[in-house]
Design a protein around this nucleic acid. Structure first.
Lengths: 156, 156
DNA sequence: AAATTCTTGCAAGTAATTTGCAAGAGCAAG
DNA sequence: CTTGCTCTTGCAAATTACTTGCAAGAATTT
């Protein structure tokens, strides 16, 4: 049912459970209950999730016993290496994770009071500077992490 | 020797040990060896420092026994509450700290290989978006955290 | 279905804070 | 310049958030 051009190895496919699972298969990895549940949870997430949140969300979605924490940790570690997810820091003790959508980068707005996280639907303003870091500073594989913090209307 | 306009309560003073210590005094806090050493170390730092780095740097600068880790932790906690320093995340396990200079905001460029951190002397490109978050999103006290990651010329 | 190899759960191990508490040290008052 | 009041510090223990070792379990291949 995937609408992606499955044969074009270098084209960036649309984000879906199928394309992600295919990517895992392509790496010789196995499609397990846990991985399917985690990917499903990430796709449904409206905000970045912590490991514990992923554990709970994945369990609910798959209607199965929640996965072990270490398992979630290792699955996320793997997905991060494959650049399917990225770890982000929201000013909290725990790290949070979200899917990397190659078609739509977005930054975050975090309420410092209630902790609510909004995914910003605004054009990211740092691309030009990123280019400059490549060209004039000579850095390669430049990425960035941009988070905004403030008190949301409800918390004022 | 301070060149600041010490009487203007609301003007943002130039960053110096004196102005920072005055700020602490104003809060009824005491000027201790440790705090002086830590502030001195932060002023001299060319990059954000971890708690352990602050501990060592402060000890050297003050030519005294290094402070206890818990002490450094609590001093930095205090300085952060007073908005004199800010904690930043450089993609490592430990947090790093740096002084907040009200006159010159800067972002960071981190080498993902050797860990080198450059303080970017480029105009920060997110001010307009920050304004929009205040005006259209209704957020107050909006700040941001922007870090770039890449492989530096030496590491390629 | 059996063999092969990747994955998982459990438990133990680390790293980085974070906290409790009694001893020590600023600082104002005398 | 000593005393007293509190704020601070050092030490040690407690927490939090990962991170890893290993044997049992589950995908895939044959």
């Amino acid at each position: 049912m995937s609408r992606t051009h499955a044969h074009g190895a270098s084209t960036l496919p649309t984000l879906s459970a199928d394309t992600i699972l295919d990517l895992l298969r392509g790496q010789g990895m196995r499609i397990t209950r846990g991985r399917v549940a985690i990917i499903s949870a990430l796709l449904a997430a409206k905000a970045p999730l912590s490991l514990e949140e992923i554990r709970v969300a994945a369990g609910k979605r798959a209607r199965q016993e929640p996965l072990d924490f270490a398992t979630v940790y290792r699955v996320m570690e793997t997905l991060e290496e494959l650049k399917i997810v990225q770890k982000i820091h929201l000013g909290r003790a725990r790290s949070h994770y979200e899917l990397v959508d190659p078609h739509a980068h977005h930054d975050h707005l975090v309420c410092t009071d209630c902790g609510k996280v909004e995914m910003l639907d605004e054009p990211c303003p740092v691309e030009p500077l990123e280019r400059k870091l490549r060209r004039h500073y000579g850095y390669a594989e430049v990425k960035h992490s941009l988070e905004f913090f403030g008190r949301c209307p409800d918390c004022q």
